[in-house]
Write a protein that binds this DNA or RNA. Structure first.
Lengths: 186, 186
DNA sequence: GCACAAAAGCAAATAATTTGCGTTAGTGAA
DNA sequence: TTCACTAACGCAAATTATTTGCTTTTGTGC
């Protein structure tokens, strides 16, 4: 949605995209989600409702687009020490963000659309972050789980618990890390 | 939604519940999901739209309710032989059903609502099935993973891949089983 | 700057959702 | 069984959201 490989005459204005996204973010912060409607978003963004309908289709798709944007990480995982320590710190923050009310709702928004593009996008961000950690481990010669192992046995359980409303704490996340590291050393 | 612990005078008619659910199932089978609206559902169910609005709130919640009902398993996992064989057979079918177009959509419907009740309900069904397998293993004296291990390292990765649009095959599921069994024997 | 094509604005038409009120139907007690 | 009671249902009007045809604006390549 952001870019366009082969821009033909008559492109979309970046103005609308930015104004609408910001409007959605502000409204989600201030009011109950059930009261967020396309006409209201349009009004705050100084845009016509029909523009939003034609561009995004419906509220769900717009929310999914905004949520996926917000789920994009700001930078690389922090450098603490060993790759394992970096992983522990990163995943703890990841789990916190995703388990928060806002994070959980963004996850749901992203998954609610028929079009899986935003879900893939979101999973892709996570995988990029993990790849950075894997590369660091490789540089240092540390043994480290593969991307597949991390996704299956660290990320998946966390996301499952968030989506299906099962509480967990930092100790649980640390155990998942310990388990996935143990396995990769075996 | 189905039951009511302390039924007070003036209960809900089971008629409406049944007719609306059936109407939704039929429409989802026959037409594009984007064309399924509450007025149409109401018409087919011989019910007034306002009844549906008052009872379920909106289309998403109704779809979530219907989806959760349909995700309820019909019976206990089949008895093949050892608990491990039973688990392999059961999880293969589980993964197939969930990964199918219908299954995937039901999962998304269940997760789309703010109210997590239906998601918990759905996860509960899975856990019940797994508990049956665990009990069988215990009877036979077979070593077997705990419920937590099965949820974290078998169910979660499968559901994650389905939700985030990442393909997998039967071999992948068998590997997950092998891994979770290996760990529980260690 | 010019020509072109895709978006955006506008407003009327359509469809969905909400709401007030009268009616029906399920429940517990006599 | 009947009665009193309360919640759910049906109906219709009012409100709000969505779609659509058409015009104007804006971004792009020449």
């Amino acid at each position: 949605m952001g870019h366009r490989e082969n821009p033909r005459p008559g492109g979309r204005s970046a103005r609308v995209q930015a104004a609408v996204h910001q409007s959605v973010r502000e409204m989600l912060a201030k009011m109950d989600r059930a009261d967020v409607t396309i006409p209201l978003i349009a009004q705050r963004a100084n845009v016509t409702p029909s523009t939003i309908y034609r561009r995004w289709g419906d509220l769900q798709e717009l929310l999914a687009d905004v949520a996926a944007s917000r789920l994009q990480p700001e930078g690389e995982p922090a450098r603490i020490g060993s790759a394992r320590e970096d992983l522990e710190a990163w995943v703890e923050q990841y789990a916190d963000e995703m388990a928060s009310g806002v994070g959980r709702q963004m996850l749901r928004d992203v998954l609610a659309t028929i079009d899986g593009t935003n879900a893939e996008r979101c999973s892709g961000y996570t995988q990029q972050q993990l790849c950075v950690l894997i590369a660091r481990a490789k540089e240092n010669g540390e043994s480290f789980p593969s991307l597949g192992e991390l996704m299956d046995h660290l990320i998946s359980p966390i996301i499952y618990r968030i989506l299906f409303d099962q509480a967990f704490d930092a100790g649980y996340v640390r155990e998942l890390v310990a388990r996935v590291m143990r396995k990769s050393n075996a």
